[in-house]
């Protein structure tokens, strides 16, 4: 059972039977077995039969899952299992990759996001994202935070705005303060909001990116291994932050750190190599008593 991690996704998809012989589970059987997760309340996202190809590489196979609102959903799995690909489908950032092809349905609040005429700007306003490595803009901290609202026309400052009497400097100050406080960064940077954000430490940069995403007032925040590039202290700050955020926002977090998933998430989806969603349930259930033998092996560290 320890031989499945390093194989090529295509090869495994083709040889699924041979590689998962222990309990007689094939990937084909596994894919829809334990994913029928029930929860109270409305789903924020409804994903049905989602398939993604990168060129000839079939990166995600028939993913169907509902993501509940105002909670933390963790996506875990070994490298190359498609969890980041799945995340990028939720705000259509995969459109940026020329060879990517997406098939299936993703609905946000019941509205299909994969159809003609969807306004990607509007979608990404509602579904924010924080990336694996911090990517602040080479601008001041203040400008980084107010970037989204500026682009959406909610904040105007500068000479032109002052001349035409639409100066939003105060609004900007409040927004910056609120967002930085939400991201637990305010105390560290409040005296130097005009400094270039590139000068911040890695952990601070990542919290700045979270604050930046919050400032656009999204409904969903997608996080792609937000703490993987950070030291333990910064990581724990980010984790606390994620738990807090789930009171007001729907958070979807990709991580390959299982302890982290267990600490912060309400429900967990396990992807395994080849791009299959194998099991999706309450986090406690997944970590204490998973249905799938392969998920148990993965979680107990037998592979992956």
């Amino acid at each position: 059972m320890s031989n499945t991690t390093q194989t090529d996704p295509n090869a495994e998809a083709a040889n699924g039977n041979e590689q998962t012989t222990v309990v007689g589970e094939t990937n084909e059987e596994l894919k829809a077995e334990w994913v029928d997760y029930r929860f109270d309340g409305e789903p924020k996202f409804t994903v049905e039969d989602l398939n993604v190809w990168y060129g000839d590489d079939h990166a995600l196979h028939d993913i169907s899952m509902d993501i509940p609102e105002k909670s933390v959903t963790a996506l875990i799995g070994p490298s190359g299992c498609g969890k980041s690909t799945f995340l990028r489908c939720l705000n259509r950032m995969n459109d940026r990759i020329k060879v990517a092809r997406v098939d299936g349905s993703v609905r946000l609040d019941g509205r299909e996001i994969y159809q003609d005429g969807v306004d990607l700007v509007e979608l990404r306003k509602r579904v924010g994202q924080v990336f694996q490595s911090p990517n602040p803009f080479p601008k001041s901290i203040r400008r980084n935070i107010s970037y989204g609202p500026r682009k959406h026309g909610d904040v105007n400052t500068g000479l032109l705005a002052r001349l035409t009497g639409r100066d939003d400097s105060e609004k900007e100050e409040k927004l910056v303060e609120r967002s930085l406080k939400q991201a637990a960064l305010w105390d560290e940077v409040k005296g130097r909001l005009d400094d270039n954000a590139i000068g911040l430490s890695g952990g601070q940069q990542q919290r700045l990116c979270i604050a930046r995403a919050l400032a656009t007032d999204p409904e969903v925040i997608l996080m792609d291994e937000p703490a993987s590039a950070l030291d333990p202290v910064a990581t724990s700050k980010i984790e606390d932050l994620i738990v807090e955020l789930s009171e007001d926002y729907t958070v979807v977090v990709v991580t390959h750190n299982m302890q982290q998933a267990a600490r912060i998430s309400d429900q967990t989806a396990v992807f395994l190599t080849g791009g299959y969603l194998v099991e999706y349930d309450d986090t406690d259930k997944i970590f204490e008593n998973p249905e799938s033998q392969r998920v148990e092996d993965y979680i107990t560290g037998k592979f992956g």
């Binding site: 509205r111 996001i113 005429g117 306004d119 979608l123």
Partner: peptide, 9 residues
Amino acid sequence: ADTLVDDDS
């Protein structure tokens, strides 16, 4: 009505 979808026509 629907802020996600733009109507071009």
